[in-house]
Write a protein that binds this DNA or RNA. Structure first.
Lengths: 237, 237
DNA sequence: ATCCTATTGTCTCAATTTGTGACAATAATA
DNA sequence: TATTATTGTCACAAATTGAGACAATAGGAT
């Protein structure tokens, strides 16, 4: 959901918002950044509005930077949600009141919104989520254990996952879900978390190497009682 | 581009439009419906605006029906173009003036527009394009011989093609690019036109049949001096 | 009627890719 | 020094794809 400031009504394009599904990966779990509004028990995807002279893509980058502190993240647009009944009237009224703001003054926020949805793959460890003015938490939740989300945000997450799943190779290579260097096992775990299926180790390794997307580096002494795995990174192009 | 009527300014969501890339297939050529405005030499994709209480998807369906007379067409949204400099100021001024309308009265049309782009696959033969109030032609053009298009419409077409090309199997099956019954050769020609490559006949046939998307019907006596091919249709599901 | 020709449906065999397990090479730990 | 859990690679079977061969037409030509 959106960050609110008094000047918003005049500065932004009306009826237009964006929402972002920010994926992170920790251990074996795929997670998503979810916001909870202060005093409301309302959960939503991080989103925002577009300034009148701002590129849509820039608006989303700006929002991501405000919430995560992250810059230079590859964002991918995947769908625009445009049903006529998409409005935040009830939850937003609650949010405004609970934050001492008048619903009259922010009436434009209660109307219908078209929302352009983006996803990003970021490195879980790089993020210290920063709650904004109206939220008391911006936290990671596992994709399969999300809190009940407002409006159609659960649908947006579902569509983000579907989109992510096909042509995953190219998408993972462009994103930052994994640290700069990673082992083949970590890569496989990321695939498995996203696709929701188990993969065969040898086949997976052979396939990954044949894609010519990976560069092999030195070995990593993991501390485990076994042979040390190679580290890999994506060849950026 | 959009259909203009005096009431538009108040009835529609401001700054929001849609554009549609309507694909048709004739013989061996992939074609697109392009509009040319009356007296202007300005070429554009068919598009329009969204009513304040209308679903985005419905708006696009409505526009397609107005221009082609076609109903019940599968439309697929593929990208939303949101650069800050997307406006129709110059061409639209020309269009308005050449049609005896005042640019002042339609000032809202000259501003920045976010545009949600859709594509559709329709049966070339079913369409008798209907020029609307402001256009003197709505005609098929081969994808590789389009007239110069206004604004970023050439980019929109390019992105539509890219989208169409991956997972083409499923997309062709859902669309109506081919008539209800078609030969394997026609199907192959459609693939070749879209992908821009030649395919091997036997491999293609084997692959298509193995997808379990096709139902085989009676043979077609084509009039050619050779064995008659089977007819196929897509199994709708 | 009979032959000729272009196209179609199917088969075959080679080449390539994928599934599956085997196995030796390690890096700690006992 | 033996033990154990991985890892990298190889080997072979199974499945898929590439590429051509070939018989079966449905007309047109003679």
């Amino acid at each position: 959901m959106q960050k609110i400031s008094p000047s918003t009504a005049t500065d932004h394009l009306p009826h237009l918002a964006y929402d972002s599904v920010i994926f992170g990966f920790s251990g074996t779990q795929l997670k998503i950044l979810i916001m909870e509004y202060h005093n409301t028990n309302i959960f939503a995807l991080p989103g925002g509005f577009v300034l009148k002279n701002e590129h849509l893509n820039d608006a989303v980058r700006r929002g991501l930077k405000e919430r995560t502190g992250l810059d230079n993240i590859h964002l991918e647009q995947f769908y625009t949600f445009g049903d006529a009944d998409r409005n935040n009237a009830e939850p937003m009224r609650t949010i405004l009141v609970n934050n001492g703001l008048s619903p009259e003054k922010y009436h434009w926020m209660l109307e219908r919104f078209i929302s352009v949805a983006y996803y990003a793959l970021i490195n879980y460890k790089d993020v210290v989520p920063q709650p904004d003015a109206l939220s008391d938490s911006c936290r990671w939740y596992p994709v399969n254990a999300l809190p009940p989300l407002m409006m159609d945000h659960a649908l947006i997450v579902e569509k983000a996952l579907q989109t992510l799943r096909d042509n995953l190779d190219r998408k993972l290579a462009r994103g930052n879900l994994l640290p700069p260097k990673f082992t083949m096992k970590e890569l496989q775990q990321a695939y498995e978390a996203i696709l929701g299926t188990k993969l065969l180790r040898t086949t997976f390794q052979r396939r990954m190497l044949s894609l010519n997307l990976l560069e092999r580096h030195e070995k990593q002494y993991s501390g485990g009682a076994h042979k040390a795995p190679y580290l890999y990174s994506f060849i950026k192009g």
